[in-house]
Design a protein around this nucleic acid. Sequence first.
DNA 1: TTTACAAAGATAGTAATACTATTAAATAAA
DNA 2: TTTATTTAATAGTATTACTATCTTTGTAAA
Lengths: 228, 228
Amino acid sequence: MELSLQIKMNEKLFLRNPEETELGREIILNSIFLIHKAGFESFTFKKLALKIGTTEAGIYRYFENKHRLLVYIVSWYWSWLEYKVMVHTNNLKSPELKLKKIIQILATDVKDDVQTKHVDELLLHEIVRMEGAKAYLTRHVTEDNKQRIFKPYKDLCGAIAVIILECNPKYKYPRSLSSTIIEVAHYQNFFMKNLPSLTDFGKIKDDWKVIGFLEDLVFASLFPATRK
Amino acid sequence: MELSLQIKMNEKLFLRNPEETELGREIILNSIFLIHKAGFESFTFKKLALKIGTTEAGIYRYFENKHRLLVYIVSWYWSWLEYKVMVHTNNLKSPELKLKKIIQILATDVKDDVQTKHVDELLLHEIVRMEGAKAYLTRHVTEDNKQRIFKPYKDLCGAIAVIILECNPKYKYPRSLSSTIIEVAHYQNFFMKNLPSLTDFGKIKDDWKVIGFLEDLVFASLFPATRK
DNA sequence: TTTACAAAGATAGTAATACTATTAAATAAA
DNA sequence: TTTATTTAATAGTATTACTATCTTTGTAAA
């Protein structure tokens, strides 16, 4: 039996569903490639069009603008990651083990185990680390949010919060801790690689250092010393 | 006696020192105003020039491009904040109290106590919360970093790390915890106001909620329960 | 007092970006 | 077959992010 993961995306994110046509799938595949290669700022629809042999207008038929395309691929990533987290944790008994596994998934590079056809998850993971915050760091967050385009991120955050509460039902900040784990995993890794003096991991560049820090942080908070 | 805070900025950040001329000071003042009002993406040198009655070329004599100007004002903020942290903590005895004070300073809105002439620190604080990460989330971080333009951020991070070690000399991640405090303070506040379901603070929008979360997180990590 | 020289202002120009509009070709429904 | 409708191709525009050049003005050393 052949399984293939199909992620249903929010329809507000696109003008035409890119998963349904060859050109659409090329747009996703190559935008990931180009953004990964040169960064979101230097990414343009013109360059993308050139790369896949279509025109700018061709791409505008699928996406309103390049920010929406970024939100699309970032959201896709969060959905994919939630699925991946589910797959890797539901055979684990204790919530502590689940949480450790989640931290590990968030903080290490992707080994391409949950396969999809037209998306390179490894590149996408690196894109999200560097460009992910730009999806919501805009003046139009509020309107974007009303269109529910950040739902995948929130869903992942909610799913982790549930496990946090299983670890300690009395813990007061499950959602904030959850979003903190996600964000810290990404930017400590970014700092480690690019601004190492903001971390304690020097030039070692070992994902497991970030994992160590995060586990320390999270489990100390969930199982605190009995001081007032 | 009149005191005025003069912050020496890295000379790589500008072509001509904006603090030294009237036009330069107008550039800083009004770029803060405009970026605060409409966001960094929609900010252009043309709009800025129009606002202060000069031309684009006039501004290009001071800053190479708008990203450098962003880094300039963000760096200025970090330097200012390090000074402010110093002022507010050196009368405190215990490092725990110092750390609490620092968290408070980072997570609350600025009350304009450490005065400067041509910078509105309140606006600047809000800019850094939303746009600060864009200073380093670029493809040219590495080259930028070689020019030491992120030094103020690192210095602040270093200063907090020292206090963290005073709290617990055995703590293994002083720098990562330090950068985490800074980042979490900003984006939990951003989430609280813009994407509240990523936090536990609902629509309450109370800075003290973020402070509570951060204190819990930090002190649990620094004084953990004795489990291995 | 002249010279000089740096800062600011004015004007123009360019390549690239982020789009929009129009028209033509292909395909599907009636 | 005719007629819609979708899809593609071409062209065009306003704005952005610059660069270049030339003139004026204040200021300060010779």
